[in-house]
């Protein structure tokens, strides 16, 4: 039951490994280790604290700069979580988890950017409406 005893996606069953003749069970960082979890936690703590500080402390007068920085920190933190907590790598489950993730991310990007783009242009082409008028609407 060695294969089942390790957390995360990274492990393959022994039988499969032998069949492939690859020694994936060795030191490759797919299994959670104490050091890995602590590193991930410390990194995400820093990557959370900085954006909160940027917004709460009004560090930059410019909103655009703050927005871009905050989003960049979020992207990095998501990658950190994926690697240290979800033990993602390109090899686990023969690469299928990574492929599924890549496909999902493609769809997510299309959904998000597409919706915001299309709806923004629709909004621009609507008749203008003052907040007062909006209140009278049912």
């Amino acid at each position: 039951m060695r294969a089942a005893a390790q957390p995360g996606l990274g492990q393959r069953s022994q039988a499969h490994n032998i069949g492939r003749g690859s020694g994936e069970h060795g030191g490759h960082g797919s299994q959670g280790t104490f050091g890995g979890y602590v590193t991930g936690f410390a990194l995400s703590l820093v990557l959370t604290a900085i954006p909160f500080w940027l917004v709460m402390g009004d560090v930059f007068a410019d909103r655009l700069t703050t927005s871009i920085l905050v989003m960049a920190f979020a992207a990095v933190q998501i990658v950190v979580h994926m690697i240290y907590f979800l033990h993602m790598n390109t090899k686990s489950e023969g690469g299928w988890t990574f492929l599924a993730l890549a496909f999902t991310l493609t769809l997510v990007v299309i959904t998000l950017s597409g919706s915001i783009w299309v709806m923004y242009h629709m909004d621009q082409n609507m008749m203008p409406m003052s907040p007062h008028e909006a209140l009278q609407k049912p």
Partner: peptide, 24 residues
Amino acid sequence: LIGFWLYLMSDCLLFAVLFACYGV
């Protein structure tokens, strides 16, 4: 495990749609 991962990916799409709604 890979099946559960695929479920999580579909859940990810669900959240993506809700994020898109919020974005709009």
